[in-house]
Nucleic acid binder design. Sequence first.
RNA 1: GUGGGGGUAGCCAAGUCAGGUCAAAGGCGCUGGAUUUAGGCUCCAGUCCGUUAGGUUCAAGGGUUCAAAUCCCUUCCCUCACACCA
Length: 957
Amino acid sequence: MEELNQREIEVKWQKKWKEEKTFEPKVDENKEKYFGTVAYPYANSILHIGHGRGYTAPDIFLRYQRLQGKNVLFPLGYHISGTPVLAVSDSIKRGDQEQIKRTKDALREYVQTEEEIETLIESFKDPMNIANFFSGTIEDSLDSIGVSIDWSRQFSTGDANYQKFIEWQFKKLDEAGVLVQGKYPILYSAADQNAVGEDDIKDGDTDKVTLSEMTYILFKLKDEEEYVAIATLRPDALFGTTNLWINKQGDYVKVSVDGQTWIVDKEAVVKLEHQFDEVKVISEHKGEEFLDKVCITPLIDREVVIYDADFLDPNHGTGIAYSSPAGSPHDFMGLQDAKKEGRVPEDLVPIVSVETTDKKGNIIEYKGSCAAEDKCLKFNITSSTDPKLEDAKQELYKEEHYGGKLNSEAGEFAGMYIKQAKDKVKEKLVGLNLAGTFYETSRRAVTRGGDKVLVACLDGQWFLNYKNQETKDKALSVLDQMEYQPHKLKATQEGYLNWVEMRPCARKRGIGTPLPQDTEWVIESLSDSTIYQMLYLVYGIISREKITSEKLTSEVFDFVMLRRGQVTEVSGGSGISEEVLNEMQAQVTYWKSFDLRYTGGTHLSNHLSFLIYHYSLIFDQEYWPKKVAVGGMLIRDGHKISKSKGNGLPLVQVPKQYGADLYRLYVALAANFDVEMDFREEDIKGLSKKFDRFKDLISLSLEQEKVEYSTLSSTNKWLVSRFYSRVEEYKEFFDSMRMREAYVSVFYEFMNEINYHQRRTSEEETSKVLRFIVEDYLKVMTPVIPHICEEFWSKLGNESSISLEMLSTDTEEFIDKEIEELEEIISTLVTSISRELENKPEAKMISIIQARTQRFELFDTLKGLLSQGGKPDFKKIMGELNQRFGDDKKFIQKFVPKTLGSGLSFYLSQEDERTLLEDTIDFFKAEFSVDFEIVNAEDVEMNSGTLVPGRPQVVGR
RNA sequence: GUGGGGGUAGCCAAGUCAGGUCAAAGGCGCUGGAUUUAGGCUCCAGUCCGUUAGGUUCAAGGGUUCAAAUCCCUUCCCUCACACCA
């Protein structure tokens, strides 16, 4: 057979797997099934090196399941619903050069000429073309790193057939009574009359805009049935109100809001219109018309006056503010400035309404008239425009939030902590019809088109309602029978299930399935990705039979997924043959739900929560999901992979630059899969050497003839035994999804033992042993480096694919613990001798000193005591030993407690130990080129404080 | 604000749930050696302090225990996710 390089080997086997449909499993009642899934990738660009980890990790685990003889299904589709594809398309339409360049770079991985690229870019003005193009690249990318996916079942969330399934899902949810309508605040553009997402907002990706929930409070004008409306984040500051601010130059209106007359800035009207039901402007006014009017502070009936302020932002809140200077550095400085300019009377002073204690419970004494003044002094603030005000505010708010209590100014709220008072005050005011929720954007924002972004409360928003206890209980019982990896995430998940209440599930923009109950709306892209794993089970047949969407009626899914209805009727109603319907149902019955879902940790709160709810609402217990494993991100050389950094090496480049096997090996070894992993150029280079050594070792071994186990020397049996001990360990690690530890053991650590063995014997002997274990060695390595293992496997003359082989199970006969323990004594000695010679390079003679006879007796006694069963009785053991070996108290005190856990380590009798050492002396001589002697501790002058059986001491002279 | 994750030697990173042969796996780096004309590769050894005995370590402090990186409490620091966004 001609020698192929790594790259050629990888391509060769990838092709072969595809041709032979190696990873397209069939229903097989005689084989245990294992159904693994991963979140389908989003098809708005090509995959990069970071994505690779998310597929490699589960692939390694699923390939291990095949080694266990299981029938493994690992399907995948593509996600295109929602806004990201739209966003790319819009950017291209807009002529966003950065986006166009990025997209072109991605295209270059797959398209040869610039002409074709231009054509494609042009076609991307239709978002569906983007989705279709990139879907195609995903299969290619994942194949290139050897992910064992069954592509015959692929679909995209934009497919008509997929959408029929989603429609069915929503009908089921509706039947379960969780689909409801209500009001909901969202970011909105009044000009576009549409919801806006991050991608629609100018700089929305770099400077996020969020909803900020404010409280509006109404101050009644004295002797009039009109209210001045202010909006605040701190309703508890109401009690410190000294006055209201209005801009005398500003334009204000009287507006009727749900029956009340409010005075607000003109700019606020559009916001009110989108957040309240009935909003109507009554009249327009200049700010100065309201100056010096008296208002009533709600709850405490304090009369406050409206004064002029030039610092108000007409776009923020209602454009009118209350001033609570004692607790707000901004208000305090505002007041100072106003005094200087004579806009307020001299005698207007801060009203302290909060008393704050520090962490030790002592009341904080503030300098000046109030806390805000103290902070202004501390931060050296002298004007109302000082940027340091923000820091002062943060510090004071934090202090008051944790340690502040309202004082007697707060009437019935006196004594209440600020933390609770915020909500309680608001609650009370709402009850009086003098306050409510008012939403504001977290920063001033405009759309890319330049229109103002505001908050609108949408009427008729569709929700999934997970609030009811009955619904929650069902979901919790699904969770109850699930396993999480890492385990502690199960508790986290439970928290999320309890926390989720009303989830908006449809939007007015984006790609997706129209909501069957109300086709004005499109099903939101996380809600359409919850139980879709079930669709894989039948999609192979749907594609093969070219079934079209109009045939996929609800009855079909009821029959296939839930075994409801009669096949004859369903067939008649849909036009799908009975045979095919039965075949589809059989797939679902066999594969049931997924045994593993591998996903990112951020999905716990949303995707996985909905998934669990939806399974619980639609499927019977037999079809509930089994296991969730959470994987971490991949970063490169300490940096997050991001578009702007351009450090996302395209995944298809990975096999070219490093090799698929090496990449996979690296992913398996560099970090536990559940934590963030740093892909470091340095490290993968180092690993490459070890990988080459592995290949050399296997190649050499293949030149050997396989021999009988009984003919192997005991040192050779040692290596065999070490290998199979490690295989046992490997299985345990894998069973608890600790892939990294499994491979540290069989790859790194075992290779160290191979090296030791080679030194202990010879290269040829080592090859002989490796030949003996090579089949199983290749098998345990197959999940992580499948290509090279296939190649070696075929060199051994096998016709079948190693990917579908089973790991040998009857290997206990090759594990010989005694041989391992004996060699352990030798190898420890080798290390000690090296060390001694390092310290005394001039030594000509090495003495190997055995422990005193009495120590052997002590060990025998201790062994007897420890083996008495049950938990070792510390006091009894110490007592007995001290009595019998009184002159060794110091040693007993120090050494014996350590043995209470896992017992004494292995040791031989004094005579047997001596025999072993004598037998090994030739090896030592050859290895170190000095003379050796074996002596007893009794016979030499030395401090033998810690010298114990099984660990002779080494002294050179 | 709400809810998570974490701090281990020069660096990366296991170990913590189930306390005990834990001065703490593995890798990288570094030092020395073997091999080599030399370098590289590969292999061997060392890498908290100390020549041994021993001493001092797992963010800091305290506690429980015969025994603590591991359990409990306190403090400090880093980090992630929070709803229409996949």
